[in-house]
Design a protein around this nucleic acid. Structure first.
Lengths: 117, 117
DNA sequence: CCGTATCCATGACGATACTG
DNA sequence: CAGTATCGTCATGGATACGG
């Protein structure tokens, strides 16, 4: 397998809680997944379509991560073919709400910026 | 040399505002800088000390980025040697407050998680 | 339909040395 | 003090092919 040669690149110092919490949403497409689940359940392919540009690999990756972190839940039904969908957990919904505030302020920031090349 | 074939790495699709806003805080140490400025002005070396593990290069990088985004402000006084310090802009402070909420929820998420190795 | 596996280009970041 | 310049490495994630 892979040999660890020099340990790590980023030994988590993270004395500030923000740093820790950012890890929840770090990585490409992570925020998008949360965002597109805010209105209700979506199945894999729906998300794949919603989030234009994401690959199946990354989508799976992010879904697993978010599931593990307790932000979303994976639900299955044994039909034929079996169906799978994802929803935000209650806490995930709260997270989404709090993020909406951040988005709001972020948009104000863009307006604040001086337009300069 | 290296052949560039396709050049495109990430053509910002970002139809969701969250994606856009995450870019504000993306990258290592970005969140930390904001966090450590929340209590007032800090000069370069203070931040370098606060944020243990950050290199001068990255700190400069992040400070420039955040300044450009309107989150922080760079202030100088022409003493000898000249002094420089950084503060959150008003909107930057709001951002910081909104992030505090996210942190709060993120911490609840950690408690929700099933403990498994 | 819902993924998993592999391959490798890109760039983010750490280390280090240098400057006004 | 407050940076800038350069280099090397590793992790991220896109492309592609395959499996249940």
């Amino acid at each position: 397998m892979v040999k660890r040669r020099k340990s790590k690149v980023l030994p988590p110092p993270s004395r500030c809680p923000l740093h820790q919490c950012m890890r929840l949403l770090s990585g490409a497409w992570t925020a998008d997944v949360v965002w597109y689940l805010r209105e209700g359940k979506r199945c894999f392919t729906e998300l794949e379509t919603d989030i234009e540009g994401v690959s199946a690999k990354m989508l799976t990756n992010r879904l697993r991560k978010l599931e593990h972190d307790g932000v979303i839940e994976r639900c299955t039904k044994r039909t034929s073919p079996p169906t799978v969908w994802y929803v935000l957990t209650p806490v995930g919904q709260e997270l989404c709400g709090a993020l909406a505030n951040v988005v709001d302020i972020a948009q104000r920031l863009k307006r604040t910026q001086v337009t300069r090349p």
